[in-house]
Computed example of a mutant assay.
Amino acid sequence: MHANPVAAKPCATCGDLTGRGYPSCAGCVAEVDRPWLTAWAELPDADPERVADAPAGDYPWACVDWALRQLRCAGCGGELAAGAPDCVGCATADAARWELVPPTAHDVVLRAAVVALRAPTWRRQAVASTWRLLLPFVVAGAVPTGSEVREVRTQVVAGRYEELASVEVLPLEVPLLPWRRSTV
């Protein structure tokens, strides 16, 4: 677990923790998408098709992700790499996106959360709900470990989403489930 607790702040637009309303709340979107917008603004010629079609490594990961968001899939008409869950074009674009590894652990978890929430039908509900719970803390600078993500997902599967949603500090301090308690 984190040595230093990370507190999330409320969104001025929706009132929930910033990021929890992503991608439907404009205030949450503005905060969450900041790294993508910053990278995109630094491109001298921001052409989504050219960026998305370029060989892996020609553009920063955030620019490739942002380019995919700007493009529509020819197969399903949805956001490229986040459209219909059975769309081959979207699946191919999503797989290509992961060829570029973000440079920091924080960027990796931020990207994983955003991708899960932009295409929630591609994942089990518990996975999308887990990232919805964790995203406000990632926006605040936290980097949840794999074990923290798994523990939150276990709690979500056990029906504790609402209880976890009321916690404003990471790590999410909730009593362990009966089957997860040590008997030693």
Results as ranks from 00 to 15, higher is better:
Leu172Pro: 03
Gly83Asn: 05
Leu170Ser: 08
Cys90Pro: 09
Gly78Arg: 03
Ala74Gln: 13
Trp131Gly: 07
Ala3His: 14
Thr130Met: 06
Ala84Cys: 13
Asp58Arg: 08
Arg181Cys: 09
Ala81Asn: 05
Lys9Thr: 14
Leu176Lys: 06
Thr18Leu: 03
Gly57Gln: 02
Asp53Ala: 15
Gly89Thr: 12
Leu110Ser: 03
Pro136Phe: 01
Pro23Ser: 00
Trp40Gln: 06
Gly21Ser: 05
Ala95Tyr: 08
Thr13Met: 07
Val115Ile: 13
Leu172Tyr: 03
Val139Gly: 00
Ala96Asn: 14
Gly83His: 04
Gly75Thr: 11
Ala116Phe: 08
Leu43Ala: 01
Arg72Gln: 13
Ala8Asp: 01
Val169Glu: 09
Gly75Leu: 08
Arg20Pro: 06
Ala12Arg: 09
Pro85Met: 02
Ala95Met: 13
Ala95Arg: 15
Cys76Val: 10
Gly21Leu: 04
Val157Phe: 13
Val167Pro: 07
Leu68Gly: 12
Val152Ser: 03
Pro171Met: 01
Arg69Trp: 10
Pro44Tyr: 07
Asn4Arg: 15
Val115Met: 10
Leu133Pro: 02
Leu110Phe: 05
Ala158Glu: 01
Pro144Ile: 02
Pro144Ser: 07
Tyr161Phe: 13
Pro178Tyr: 06
Leu134Arg: 00
Pro171Gln: 02
Ala126Thr: 04
Asp107Met: 09
Asp58Asn: 09
Val169Cys: 07
Arg160Lys: 11
Thr183Arg: 15
Leu71Arg: 10
Ala8Thr: 00
Asp86Phe: 08
Val138Phe: 09
Pro136Val: 04
Ser129Lys: 13
Phe137Ile: 03
Val174Arg: 13
Ala52Thr: 04
Asp33Ala: 01
Pro23Ile: 00
Arg150Pro: 08
Ala96Pro: 09
Gly15Ala: 05
Ala96Met: 11
Val184Met: 14
Ala140Val: 00
Glu173Leu: 11
Arg160Gln: 14
Val156His: 04
Thr130Ala: 05
Ala91Tyr: 12
Ala62Arg: 12
Cys14Gly: 02
Ala116His: 06
Ala116Trp: 12
Leu177Glu: 08
Gly78Met: 01
Tyr22Val: 05
Ala8Gln: 01
Thr183Lys: 14
Pro178Cys: 06
Cys90Tyr: 05
